[in-house]
Every structure is written in structure tokens, then in C-alpha cells.
């Protein structure tokens, strides 16, 4: 799911505890901790883990990119992974032409035709605005045959233009080659074990700070730990509703546990619905734990929670009805869509 959905869910979870709400009304910032913990798993991946990933091959097209050369290098890594049985981790670099100029290119895997396709695109600025007429002369999609059996993976175009490029891990499983998009995502950072550790850590740090600052201990550090642990857990469980799932009990488990396949993490409706329901529940909780509640609880829950859930949830299921896509492709799409955050600048 998108960052905002995880963040608001973390806040909503925090407000289910009357002590947290009452302390918040008196000036505490405990619910903010829930939001931070809610977005933390992706923060750990996208702001830390990715930088420590070691690649077997870094493909740098240079200022005069050759589509065939790029495609052949990718296919070379795919064949190596298949033939040697050793996974190949590959990153494609962007092409920077100036302070505010980049050359765009696209790459896509076409499992149906067993090919990799690359196309060199226009020059764009950092706002991804293409300069008209800047496409290279005679630029067409170049296709190179993979030549080894691959699973039906995510086949949409991956656009490589500004800052950093995409990474892929090619892994042979049985007699098929799998393409893992952004393999560093949802591994150790998305584990319930880590949620427990962080919750306990928050209790410890909170207690230490309180002891040093006030010389005595209250139950506030316990609430802080609970809010952090549950906010983090909420993120992992929400991701588990999708296709890819997470490595739930790292370091005790090695593989990602497959998701419940109820939704696609990049889809608008589930994300919006999560934000809506979270905000509604925050309001409901703030009201019912206040000195003089104003809302008619059952009516509010019916109108603001149940009705949107049924209507939007139903609409979403209708939209998905009859659309079939290979499970492997949906799993990889789950990962890719999380990188497509709306970057409002």
C-alpha cells in the first residue's frame, strides 16, 4: 500500500487506546508515534536497505545509449542466472546529461515472447518533462530473445529517467527463471519479529528518557511501545492483504509468506478506502474517549465506516471481476507499484 495509507492506519491504531487519546488531549504526541511506526517498514527499505544491496552487474548506458547493448546485458545476466543456478542481481543506471537533463529509456520483460525490450526515449528535465523532438533519430524498440524459460512476470514498461534506475534479481527455481523486481524490498524490514523488537525498544528508550528527565516512571513508555509495535505490525498486515506478502518472522523465516491476494497494493480504491476508514476511526475514537461524546456511535460506524467499506469494497471487487493475470506478475506488480509513490514536489 501507499505511504499515506500505512501512516494514517498507524495513527488510527494508536487512538484505540483510551489512555493514549486522553494523554494526547493533554498535550502528548503519542498518536504521531503510531503514524511514524506505520510508515517505518518502507522507510527502512527505501531509505536504508536499498543502499546496502550489492549488485552482480551495474548497467550504465552512458551518454550515447545503445538499446541493443542494454538489452543484451540484461539477457546475459538472465542466462547466467539460469545456466549457473546462481542468482544475478542487476541494476540499470540512469543517464544524466546535465544538471537538469536526463535521457529517458524504457525496459520491459515480455514473457509471452520470451524477450527483453529496450527503447531509448526523449531528453527530460528533472520534472520528467520531455523536450519535444529530443528522441534519437530512428529510435525503435529493440528486442533480444532471452533463450531460457521464464515465468510469466510483470510485463509493463519500466521507465528509467531521473535519479536512480530499477533493479532486478534473476533467480532460477526449478526449470524456470524468475524476475524479482526490487528484491531488497519487504525482506527483514517487514517482519513481525522486528515489530516486537521495536516496540520493546520504544518502551526501553521511553523509560530511560522519562527516568532521566523526571526521576520516576509512569505507564507512558508502555503506551509508546504498544503504539510503535502495533503501528509497525499494522503496516505488515496491510501489505499481507496483497499478492507479494512479506518475510513475516525474519530471521526465523527466509522466504516471503505469500499474501492473501485480496487487493493490489497500488490500486486507488483500497488505498483511498484505508485512508478514509482510518480517519473515520480516529474521529470515532477521539469522540468516544472524550469527556462528553457527541457522536451516535452505531450510526457513525454505519455511515462512515460500514457503508463506504461495502460500497467501495464492492466496487473494487466488481472492477477486478474477470480480470486475470499470472500470479507471479501480480506479485511483482505489488512491489513496483509501491515505488510509484506520488512525488508531490
Amino acid at each position: 500500500m501507499k505511504g499515506i495509507a500505512h501512516f494514517v492506519s498507524g495513527v488510527a491504531i494508536a487512538t484505540f487506546f483510551p489512555e493514549v487519546v486522553q494523554q494526547a488531549a493533554e498535550g502528548s504526541l503519542l498518536p504521531v508515534l503510531g503514524g511514524i511506526a506505520g510508515i517505518l517498514p518502507d522507510t527502512l527499505d527505501f531509505k536504508f536497505a536499498r543502499y546496502f544491496e550489492v549488485y552482480d552487474e551495474e548497467i550504465d548506458p552512458g551518454p550515447d545509449p545503445d538499446a541493443r547493448e542494454i538489452a543484451e546485458k540484461v539477457v546475459g545476466a538472465m542466462r547466467r542466472a539460469y545456466e549457473t543456478g546462481r542468482p544475478q542481481n542487476v541494476v540499470l543506471h540512469t543517464i544524466r546529461l546535465g544538471t537538469d537533463l536526463w535521457r529517458q529509456y524504457t525496459i520491459r520483460f515480455d514473457p509471452a515472447r520470451n524477450e527483453v525490450a529496450v527503447r531509448i526515449g526523449p531528453v527530460v528535465n528533472t520534472g520528467q518533462v520531455p523536450f519535444p523532438g529530443s528522441e534519437p533519430e530512428g529510435a525503435e524498440e529493440v528486442r533480444v530473445r532471452v533463450g531460457v524459460p521464464m515465468v510469466h512476470t510483470y510485463d509493463a514498461e519500466n521507465r528509467v529517467d531521473i535519479f536512480s534506475g530499477p533493479s532486478f534479481k534473476f533467480v532460477r527455481k526449478g526449470d524456470k527463471l524468475h524476475v524479482h523486481f526490487l528484491d531488497w524490498h519487504r525482506r527483514w524490514s517487514h517482519s513481525l519479529t522486528l515489530a516486537a523488537v521495536l516496540g520493546l525498544g520504544a518502551i526501553g528508550i521511553g523509560a530511560l528518557v522519562e527516568w532521566l528527565a523526571r526521576g520516576f516512571l509512569t505507564r507512558t513508555p508502555l503506551w509508546a511501545g504498544l503504539v510503535v509495535g502495533l503501528g509497525f505490525t499494522g503496516h505488515i498486515l496491510e501489505d499481507q492483504l496483497g499478492f507479494m506478502g512479506s518475510n513475516l518472522f525474519y530471521p526465523f523465516t527466509r522466504e516471503r509468506a505469500i499474501g492473501l491476494q485480496l487487493l493490489r497494493s497500488g490500486d486507488a480504491i483500497p488505498n483511498f478506502l484505508t485512508v478514509w476508514l482510518s480517519v473515520a476511526l480516529v474521529l470515532f475514537n477521539l469522540d468516544r474517549f472524550s469527556a462528553s461524546p457527541r457522536l451516535d456511535g452505531p450510526v457513525f460506524l454505519l455511515l462512515a465506516v460500514l457503508l463506504p467499506l461495502v460500497l467501495l469494497g464492492g466496487l473494487y471487487q466488481l472492477q477486478r471481476w474477470g480480470k486475470s493475470e499470472a500470479k507471479e506478475a501480480l506479485q511483482q506488480r505489488d512491489i513496483v507499484s509501491e515505488t510509484e509513490e506520488v512525488e508531490v514536489r
Partner: peptide
């Protein structure tokens, strides 16, 4: 908190 946490890094990974 959301405004600051939701910004994505923009390195080139080189």
C-alpha cells in the same frame, strides 16, 4: 511527520 517522512531520496545509486 508525514511531510518529512514521505519524501523519497534522490540519489543516482552510482
Amino acid at each position: 511527520a508525514y511531510m518529512l517522512l514521505s519524501e523519497w531520496p534522490k540519489g543516482t545509486d552510482r
